[in-house]
Amino acid sequence: MPSFDIVSEVDRAEIANAVQNVTREIGTRYDFKGSKSTVEALDEGIKVFADDDLKLKQMHELIRGHLHKRGIEPGQLDYQKVDPAAGASVRQVIAVKEGIDRDMARQIVKAIKGSKMKVQVAIQGDELRVTGKKRDDLQAAIQFVKDMGLEQPVQFKNFRD
């Protein structure tokens, strides 16, 4: 029986590459001359340290741009609270959302079942498995989920006939 998985995952190597590019760009930009602003990739996300709020906002733009170039959607970034550091400097952790949480999974399942499509949806941990009798039904389900406008980007993997 044909099936596919709905997942939300991020390539950690691409995050590390984007952070390296941001660090390189910060080192060459005139508005960051003499600044102690840094960016580093962590296991759970990205740690940003900036001299002030203005530089923090500029670094957000740089990070978003470089991640977008590498295929990581801005919806997968979760900006945590800005913490004050020594002097006027600030620090912030940007978490990277992976996996589909329970609430979002239930929302997707409810919407697909409410659309009366001839597919079955099962929650398997942090991903969803969609099965159906026809390939066309599965393709319609993929298009339906894309058109839902979810706040977190999802990918469709393991499409099998």
Rank of each mutant, 00 (worst) to 15 (best):
I112H: 07
A122Y: 11
K116I: 08
V121I: 09
V109Y: 07
F144I: 01
Q107C: 07
V109H: 08
T131S: 15
R135Q: 14
A111D: 05
Q107M: 13
K113I: 06
Q143K: 13
I123R: 10
G114M: 01
I123L: 04
K110P: 01
V130I: 10
G132T: 07
E127P: 00
Q124D: 11
G125Q: 05
K133F: 07
G125R: 06
K110W: 07
R135D: 11
Q120S: 15
G125D: 08
I142R: 04
K118R: 13
Q107I: 07
V109A: 08
L138N: 03
I112Y: 05
R129Q: 07
M117T: 08
K118P: 00
I142G: 02
V145K: 02
L128Y: 03
K134C: 05
I123Q: 10
A141R: 05
A111K: 12
A141V: 05
V145M: 00
V130C: 00
K116R: 14
F144D: 02
Q139I: 05
V109L: 10
L128D: 02
R129C: 03
A122G: 08
Q143T: 13
G114T: 06
G132S: 06
R129V: 10
Q107G: 09
G132D: 06
D126H: 06
Q107K: 14
G132C: 03
R135N: 09
R135H: 09
K133V: 08
M117W: 06
V121T: 10
Q143C: 08
A122S: 10
E127D: 11
M117P: 00
Q124I: 07
K118Y: 10
T131E: 15
L128R: 03
L138H: 04
D126A: 13
L138S: 02
Q139P: 03
M117F: 12
L138D: 02
K133H: 09
Q107P: 00
D137C: 06
A140I: 01
V145R: 03
Q124M: 08
Q143G: 10
S115P: 01
R129L: 09
D136R: 14
I123M: 08
K113H: 11
K134Q: 15
A111R: 08
I123K: 07
G114H: 05
V119K: 04
D126G: 04
G125K: 04
S115Q: 11
Q143M: 09
S115L: 10
E127M: 14
G125E: 05
K133E: 13
D126S: 12
